[in-house]
């Protein structure tokens, strides 16, 4: 399996859309298979059929919803990178909020505001966790601060007299 690196910006939209679709379809498939199994009438045959039908009916819809979310989010993210000329967590948070708002556009202003808040908070949580993990994993690479290093006691003290030839260090 090759190393997976993120695409540059305009192509990232398609990539994120596909990734979100995959995630949603597989996750929705697992979820719906369990749900269909439990909701079907008793008997192994009924349960298996119910599970299969539920997956067939609902998993692509979950995938599609995820794909719309991912694609729209990535579009807004790239647009903000283009407008602000920088990439930071605020881009993602604002994109999440805008995506949530736009996707609820047909349900009225109150629903739009609620979805926008949910989207923004969700993305802020994701970004926050990412930053936290980066901080924690960076802690072990932190160098020892130079102020803590003192004159080693087991060595003789620094010579105080000036070197010969006028203090010019000879490099060769």
């Amino acid at each position: 399996m090759e190393e997976y690196a993120r695409e540059p910006c305009p192509y990232r939209i398609v990539d994120d859309c596909g990734g979100a679709f995959t995630m949603g379809a597989i996750g929705g498939g697992v979820f719906q298979s369990i749900k269909g199994f439990r909701n079907a009438p008793a008997g192994w045959r009924h349960r298996a059929l119910g599970s299969l039908t539920a997956v067939k009916m609902r998993a692509p819809i979950t995938g599609g919803n995820f794909a719309i979310w991912g694609g729209l989010f990535s579009t807004f993210d790239c647009g903000m990178v283009y407008l602000r000329k920088k990439e930071d967590p605020w881009n993602s948070i604002a994109s999440g909020a805008v995506t949530g708002g736009v996707l609820a556009a047909r349900s009225g202003w109150a629903a739009m505001a609620g979805s926008a808040v949910i989207g923004g908070v969700l993305l802020a949580l994701i970004e926050g966790v990412g930053i936290l993990i980066t901080r924690m994993s960076a802690e072990q690479f932190k160098p020892i601060s130079p102020t803590e290093m003192e004159d080693p006691s087991q060595l003789p003290p620094k010579p105080q007299q000036s070197p010969p030839f006028g203090g010019q260090p000879a490099y060769q």
Binding site: E7, V14, G64
Partner: peptide, 17 residues
């Protein structure tokens, strides 16, 4: 050349679009 796994998400995404 890019492998199949690397191209998978782009292919799925462009199919969806």
């Amino acid at each position: 050349t890019r492998g199949r796994f690397e191209l998978a998400f782009s292919q799925i995404g462009s199919s969806v679009a």
